[in-house]
């Protein structure tokens, strides 16, 4: 999510209207159609059906809801870990492999990224079902005796979401790796460092902030994700975003939904703050 440049323009001072004035339309738009609606909804958590913090008590002290928090964090952690573990080698490959090999990989990444979110999720529904291609192949190879329950599981959601998050890890990391100074690694080799030592002592520290920032981005996005968990997940692994939708759509409890939303917002904002911090650190090359 680090699409904002860290480099700053020097301030060119003009008349007020030509600097701050330019911000006005955007700010007004945001205030009217984003801030006010959000506040109205969040306020319900304190006022409906009666004034008080009742909903927050329910949310934090009911075991079922606490489990939903745990599920949400577990899912976000898993997706982040898998995305980083797969994304780093791919980014590395893209940054240094010859063009004729890296280009097809990159095209596939872009194509999958631009394919409709629902279409991609739908494909996983089919792939992972009991009679889907994966289970059928495993059955045909006699690796399993009966179909694995892949659909509607933590596994399914993790796979589906990793699929969506991968580009958000790969592209920033590729750009970072492409910026590394080859001379540094040549020097290390000359000094007798093995590949493993260079990797641990130079490579990883050099990309650490990018890795961290990409990781937090994926984590934040995963925390509030709704579509994939609701299509691929199971009831026993419900996440916070699903709970909010369920409270509004079928339990009709807008107060509790507002409370859950506020908790989700606070967590998201906190993590966003962490990510800004990471981004602000200059990329140091040891």
């Amino acid at each position: 999510m680090s699409i904002f440049p860290t480099r700053r323009l020097r301030v060119a001072r003009g008349p007020w209207l030509e600097s701050y004035g330019l911000l006005l339309p955007g700010l007004i738009f945001l205030a009217v159609f984003f801030v006010i609606p959000l506040c109205l909804m969040l306020m319900l958590s304190f006022t409906v059906p009666s004034l008080g913090l009742e909903h927050y008590r329910t949310l934090f002290f009911t075991s079922a809801y606490r489990r939903i928090f745990a599920n949400t964090f577990l899912l976000a952690t898993l997706v982040t870990a898998v995305s980083l573990a797969l994304g780093l080698p791919v980014a590395w490959f893209l940054a240094i492999a010859p063009r004729r090999w890296s280009q097809p990989v990159q095209l596939v990444l872009i194509l999958s990224m631009w394919t409709n979110l629902l279409a991609r999720t739908y494909a996983w529904v089919v792939l992972l079902q009991d009679t889907g291609p994966i289970n059928q192949t495993l059955l045909a190879l006699h690796l399993i005796a009966e179909p694995l329950p892949l659909m509607n599981s933590l596994f399914a959601v993790t796979v589906g979401m990793t699929y969506i998050m991968l580009p958000f890890v790969v592209f920033p990391l590729r750009n970072r790796i492409a910026m590394l100074e080859p001379a540094l690694f040549q020097a290390a080799t000359l000094c007798g460092a093995s590949r493993m030592t260079s990797f641990r002592r130079i490579f990883l520290p050099a990309i650490a902030t990018t890795l961290g920032s990409a990781g937090v981005s994926v984590f934040v996005m995963s925390l509030g994700y709704y579509v994939t968990p609701s299509l691929l997940g199971s009831e026993s692994r419900m996440v916070l975003a699903e709970l909010i939708a369920q409270l509004v759509q079928s339990v009709l409890d807008w107060g509790l939904a507002g409370a859950a939303a506020l908790v989700l917002l606070v967590m998201t904002l906190f993590l966003y703050g962490v990510q800004r911090r990471l981004n602000r650190q200059p990329h140091t090359t040891p």
Binding site: M1, P37, M41, G224, Y226, A261, T268, Y272
Partner: peptide
């Protein structure tokens, strides 16, 4: 940060809030 918010906050929350509004 202000202008980034709609991208960072969970879409479900935005959707429900906007609908009610």
């Amino acid at each position: 940060t202000a202008f980034l918010m709609p991208m960072i906050l969970p879409v479900v929350v935005t959707a429900i809030a906007l609908y009610a509004f």
